[in-house]
Design a protein around this nucleic acid. Structure first.
Lengths: 250, 250
DNA sequence: CGGGAAGTTGAAGAGCGTCAAAAGTAGTGG
DNA sequence: CCACTACTTTTGACGCTCTTCAACTTCCCG
């Protein structure tokens, strides 16, 4: 699994190497157009840059835990992050997987509503909450962009509720693979094969299934010729239209 | 609308006492403090008032359907609304129940991501999307308030994912009743008994269960003395702490 | 290589869904 | 005011999907 992300993140060193020559490291940011920093001027970027810290996380490193005071907001620039909530007895629900360009840490009250952990080697920009809020007041464009992203998250969450509440295991897995593929495209990557950097247990906790059911369902889709399981945690979609039908329940 | 210049009213009773003398119907709005119109000046309220239509809906009346061009945003002022998504074969997932003070119609692309229907006799304020957006640009306080509400929705959605993906039928029903109770309190109503204006089928589609399972689970909770089913769609919570434990899976 | 985590597969069982029917409730009109 | 209808809710019997528990295999990373 880990080897797979090394591949996807191969362009990071290049980006870093360019940092020194630019006025703001953000100018070289490969995910800028995807996130809150889109459409900002160079001068504004340097102000953003001044308040953030860049962190490098190893697989399994936590960003924060549910219930903690929400002191920071984060922006994923490379790698993958999982966010989840727990029940008292340890049952876990992933509420999202985050990839480059995704934003996390919005807190309604003063504490995080979920925990966040790096899945692979991951780079994030970390913003102190108060400082970012001050900046947002001065850059309405950025605030509106953040609102739009939250609004998008809301639509994604509703789609996920439909999946969790009403789809079968096969439909869930099909939807999941298509979602990963679609998001890869939006980040400018190949749509197929799709990189699946998380474990079966993580996928299960995302889809409301057990690891065993996830594994069995992958096998089932493989045997019916709809997908191929490639080494390095990659999955090739062999019949996208049938997967799409399956995902919609037809 | 003629203008009567008043200072911002901070306390609700104070505001209500002034209703008769005020120009904008929004001044008398009982849910103002709960929604996007909180903390606006009288002059701003009258501008809001100028762009909205007030609609009265009968049970079953649609507000809009998934996929339709998102021309309006809505604010519930009285009654109850259900929002839901459908699969091709008719399977349905409620993504929320909305009560006075709640906001709906945010659309990421140009179309609604879900359908919305009145459950009971309902009053809403309807805002043309473009006009409201213009107003938001001029009233950053309101835009920030809307953002905060969307952010809250996001946290609620994540809680619902935890419920849908990982809770048992009993835990789901317990969580549901406690949620209704908590929201009633936030609207200034009694926390117990809780009013349950939606059908068993609607509840099932909200919790990822069938009507039969919802009904059986209600019966089970009633027989174990945790709730009482009252006429008129009311439920009395007989043992809140046990319900809370159950909702959290302990 | 070797050890531990992750993934796969099997068998058995539980929880919830499905199908069916009865009982309760609300609205309508004679 | 009651009968009629249609819908909602409840209850029962049965079945299926997914979970649980367990063993085995594969894949990494040191």
């Amino acid at each position: 699994m880990a080897s797979l992300d090394l591949k996807t993140s191969r362009s990071i060193p290049e980006a870093i190497s360019r940092i020194a020559t630019l006025s703001s490291p953000c100018s070289a940011c490969s995910v800028r157009q995807l996130t809150i920093c889109a459409a900002l001027e160079e001068r504004e970027l340097s102000e953003i840059s001044a308040i953030l810290s860049r962190l490098e996380l190893e697989p399994g490193d936590p960003l924060f835990f549910e219930g903690e005071p929400a002191r920071h907001l984060f922006n994923v620039t490379a790698g993958a992050v999982k966010i989840y909530k727990l029940l008292a007895d340890g049952r876990r629900q992933m509420t999202g997987f985050l990839f480059p360009g995704d934003f996390l840490g919005l807190a309604n009250d003063e504490t995080y509503a979920y925990s966040a952990t790096a899945i692979t080697k991951t780079w994030v920009c970390r913003f102190p909450r108060g400082k970012l809020e001050n900046l947002l007041k001065r850059f309405p464009k950025m605030e509106r962009r953040l609102f739009a992203m939250a609004s998008h998250e809301l639509a994604v969450a509703q789609e996920q509720m439909l999946l969790l509440g009403r789809k079968t295991a096969r439909e869930k897995i099909a939807s999941f693979l298509l979602m990963l593929s679609g998001r890869a495209v939006r980040r400018g990557q190949m749509d197929n094969p799709v990189s699946v950097p998380m474990t079966r247990a993580d996928i299960g906790d995302f889809l409301g299934l057990t690891t065993e059911t996830v594994s069995r369902t992958f096998t089932q889709l493989r045997k019916s010729g709809m997908i191929a399981l490639l080494p390095g945690g990659k999955v090739r979609l062999e019949d996208r239209s049938r997967l799409e039908e399956m995902a919609e329940g037809t």
